[in-house]
Design a protein around this nucleic acid. Structure first.
Lengths: 202, 202, 202, 202
DNA sequence: AATGAATGAGGCTTCATTCAT
DNA sequence: GATGAATGAAGCCTCATTCAT
């Protein structure tokens, strides 16, 4: 049956925890961690300030939960979408498009995990998720390098160049300096493949 | 009415204003604008908290002065180094190396101007400096596109891809995930040229 | 009720807002607006400093609220007590006694509204209340002048002389230079009537 | 010889101490003691902040010096002008006019000594000057009472009524609610004589 | 003597967190 | 569970005062 909600919640979503994470996301993206006050988050979430402390023990725990939620989401998408047996070129394209799809669907979340990367208030577990994703990407790069498809240079550097370029594109879109049309995304994808591809031979 | 210990300048540099800007730079890079307290800046600068207000009317004025100082410095370097008559390939290499030189010489300043781009506490004048630099780069891209040397796609996007890749490289270096050796920088430069270059493949 | 230490209301009155206004009144009378620190008010009110900001957005808003509260109270008393159909002599006596009753019942409040008249931190709305009262008194004077009962001179000046004399009396009492007995109040009232009355001497 | 001034003082008055007292007077009248900062006084006086401390050991000492200067000036005028052998009516008129002359010549000073009467930062010596003046006036009242010329009531109260009325007139003038023309001053003087005069008999 | 940069305590205000309801 | 008033430490900023020049 569809009626799974409890009595008396007046309006809005049914899950306070999600409301709070949603409100916190918008606040943190707009004003940063230290620039955001708990009452501001509460207001955006439509709850009382005290309620936040029923779901999260502290502001730091909240930002970490938020970070983990979205970074895990990205990681899961990447792992699920990754076409194991396909060519390196195809793998690159699939991951690129997956990331674009994520950033388009959740622009705030994308901005958040980029801006808050490696901040002092993120704890070890949050950092580990990021590490996992980076390791996965680096491994992928190394495999393709062994096949001679990618430039024979530092795999970490290659990965960072591509991921940096991707971030640059998304930030420009976020800041309305460009409008992301599908053909632009495709062109950017090809350009970034050129960044890493080993073109030296015919 | 306390002891008469402190009134002469204790030690260190001769220019308090520079000391303060230096201390603020390190604090802002470490903990962000809202995460940095004025007394922390004062301590790093070796001055009393009140002294900061002899040189800057507010914390916001201080970040803006800091941002303008370094962003202007970058802009000036770029404009001065730009080889007017050289080939697009050479222009690209020169600017890349100039940026690397700047980021290596002033890693904190580079991190600062990247992290604080487009923050709400930056004023219009600060934003204008950034705009100038971006316009200059976009104009350069367009000229090279007209010669058929660069990919025929959005010049802003091309520029953002390269600048994003550069930032990715510098951030990885800053976070010690890679060690920037000269040959790596050169390889990255070539890779990023490949990002934008029109290789005339069928 | 539980006797836990901090979070419940410790003791005293049931209305924090009134407690704060009361504490602020005493502090402002003792030391003036700029001479009073918010923590001093908080201590007198028996609340934490931060609590004041749940009820008033700023120190200025607090003085203005306080001023309006008491000046309105005086105005209301005067308007309510005013004997519409009575003789000018009787009207004068009634208002005089009403003011004395107020000043005796709320000496701090009387001192406050006198000392803080026309201060730069009072806003337009606060000033308007004062204006109303003065206009009312001036109109009363003018009516009596038309009947030939009061001296034919500037009505504002007449009013100011009487109100000044009244203030002088109250200030002397406040500063313990005189003790206000009923017969002294009555004598002063008669003297001030003599100030304004037109005795038709040749 | 006329050239009594020392070398090199660029412009303005020759006596820094007077400049400072003058600047302090205007500041204290405008914003009160606690609302006035030493640098503000310095700016109005055309000197550096530190210079003030060559002439006065502290802000409190400055306000006391200022108070004493002007209150003594008033007292001296009153004592000098007092017509020993004249009638009570004449004595009253002379003192009234003397006070008006003072307040007209030095409106800031008059406002200052009124507003700062009995403030906590005034020391014993400052208070004594005020006491002297009040005692003199009370003695005068008592003498006239003994002749049956004044109302047979508390002499202090009589004095306070008149002085309060005078203050009311001056404050209204200061606040531009009335314009003090000579005939108004004379009318007010007569009204205040009526306040105190014993009219009971023909 | 005069200056004004420097100091640091203290003022106003904000905000993470708690807890009685 | 949910609330929001209350708390008090801490943040930004001001200012009386000092002292090298």
């Amino acid at each position: 049956m569809a009626a799974s909600k409890k009595r008396g919640r007046p309006a809005g979503s049914d899950d306070r925890r999600e409301d709070i994470l949603e409100g916190a996301l918008r606040c943190f993206v707009d004003r940063g961690f230290h620039g955001t006050a708990i009452p501001q988050i509460a207001q955006r979430a439509g709850v009382a300030a005290g309620t936040i402390y029923h779901y999260f023990p502290s502001k730091e725990a909240l930002v970490n939960a938020l970070y983990r939620k979205w970074k895990s989401d990205v990681a899961q998408r990447v792992f699920m979408a990754f076409p194991q047996g396909a060519s390196a070129r195809e793998q690159f394209r699939v991951l690129w498009n997956e990331m674009v799809a994520f950033a388009a669907a959740h622009p705030d979340a994308f901005a958040f995990i980029e801006l808050h990367n490696h901040s002092s208030y993120l704890d070890a577990e949050s950092a580990a998720i990021d590490r996992n994703l980076k390791d996965f990407a680096a491994a992928m790069v190394m495999r393709a390098q062994e096949e001679g498809l990618l430039k024979p240079m530092s795999p970490v550097l290659l990965m960072e160049l591509v991921f940096g370029a991707f971030n640059g594109m998304m930030r420009a879109s976020w800041e309305k300096r460009i409008e992301l049309a599908p053909e632009m995304v495709a062109a950017a994808e090809q350009a970034c493949w050129d960044t890493v591809a080993h073109h030296g031979r015919p």
